[in-house]
Design a protein around this nucleic acid. Structure first.
Length: 336
DNA sequence: AAGCGTCCCAACCGCTTATGA
DNA sequence: CTCATAAGCGGTTGGGACGCT
């Protein structure tokens, strides 16, 4: 048995809205408001439409101050930056762009901006002798090299320049793959890492799977500053520090602090230790810590699923926010 | 002009979340 | 706490617009 329909489909008009319908809806809402009930609104407004359809029409087209037309470079930057950070959370992204709707931004991303960005990030032609600006293809074949953020000698495209001026000092390969991800999973970063994990001794799926068959997998909370503090506050210890403490959540344990495990990128022997110690890697934004805190304090199993998919069976990577630059830089040392 | 392919976006679908009884 | 209902949300798609041959 399927889901009950939200309205009687046989009695409602579907498809494009006519100017008359737009007028009726607009007039009614401006006069009476939505009344907090979209379901009953169409009848009151004299429309043969489903409430959902009315809501969508109003929110995406009719309500005041909707901005239509070309996106500015600044808007492009905001969308790209936020997409790289939080993924396809269109409503959150839209909240940062006054007058733009989530639907609009989603369409714009899918039809134009994604292509624009990929063009900008296309790897340089093979003849190039100076592709120090790291490309996605490049990092696939150069694992365990350290990533030196000071050696960029090529000139990024204007679009990349505008991106970097909006907050990223450097578009990392990791971020590139995140931006280029078209996945529908919760985190394109996660997918990018998974894909590359096949060739990465640290993130190799094989290694990971072999070591992930018990409930006490070691867990590295990979973050900095407030992340660790927040994570530490989840533990039973109360001194606020995170170093060497054990974080108990869902049967996982923290085995070391980020800083303890953060190797000097020029000394690769640290990777051996990491492989031995860390069976799971979490890149954790502060919000996920909040989730865990609220989850534990509320004694709810929610909500490491959804936004933070299935903590029990997979490498858990969520988008990197807040002090993301530091985290990404650190992560990249492993990633290579 | 006709035919075809691609692009674009408004609208839909159905899942998740919030809310209230 | 459970359940029902509505709103919110993001992925998908139908079909019109447009460009090319």
């Amino acid at each position: 048995m399927g889901r009950a329909p939200c309205c009687d489909k046989s009695n409602v008009k579907r498809g494009p809205w006519s100017p008359e319908e737009d007028g009726k809806l607009k007039e009614y809402i401006e006069k009476c408001g939505t009344g907090g009930n979209w379901i009953s609104l169409p009848q009151k407004a004299g429309l043969k439409r489903c409430g959902k359809s009315c809501r969508l029409r109003w929110l995406n087209y009719l309500r005041p101050n909707i901005k239509h037309g070309e996106f500015t470079d600044e808007e492009d930057n905001i969308i790209c930056t936020l997409f790289a950070t939080i993924g396809s959370r269109w409503s959150i992204i839209a909240a940062q762009l006054p007058g733009r709707t989530d639907n609009d931004i989603k369409n714009y991303w899918n039809t134009k901006l994604k292509k624009k960005l990929m063009m900008s990030m296309a790897p340089p032609p093979p003849s190039s002798h100076s592709h120090h600006f790291p490309s996605y293809h490049h990092h696939q074949t150069s694992h365990l090299q350290s990533y030196n953020t000071t050696t960029t000698t090529t000139t990024p495209s204007p679009f990349i320049k505008s991106l970097t001026s909006s907050g990223f000092d450097m578009i990392s390969p990791l971020l590139q793959s995140n931006l280029m991800g078209t996945t529908t999973t919760n985190s394109s970063l996660f997918q990018a890492l998974q894909e590359d994990g096949n060739n990465n001794p640290f993130l190799s799926n094989k290694h990971y799977n072999n070591n992930n068959n018990n409930n006490n997998s070691n867990l590295l909370v990979f973050g900095s500053g407030s992340h660790e503090a927040a994570a530490a506050s989840c533990s039973s210890n109360s001194d606020g520090s995170f170093g060497g403490q054990q974080l108990s959540y869902g049967g996982y344990q923290t085995v070391a602090t980020t800083t303890q495990l953060m190797p000097d990128p020029h000394h690769h022997h640290h990777h051996q230790n990491l492989e031995e110690q860390v069976k799971q890697l979490i890149v954790m934004p502060s919000t996920s810590c909040d989730d865990i805190i609220s989850s534990s304090s509320n004694n709810k199993k929610k909500n490491c699923s959804g936004e933070y998919p299935d903590i029990n069976n997979t490498l858990l990577i969520s988008s990197v926010v807040d002090d993301n630059k530091a985290v990404q830089e650190k992560l990249m040392y492993y990633y290579y």
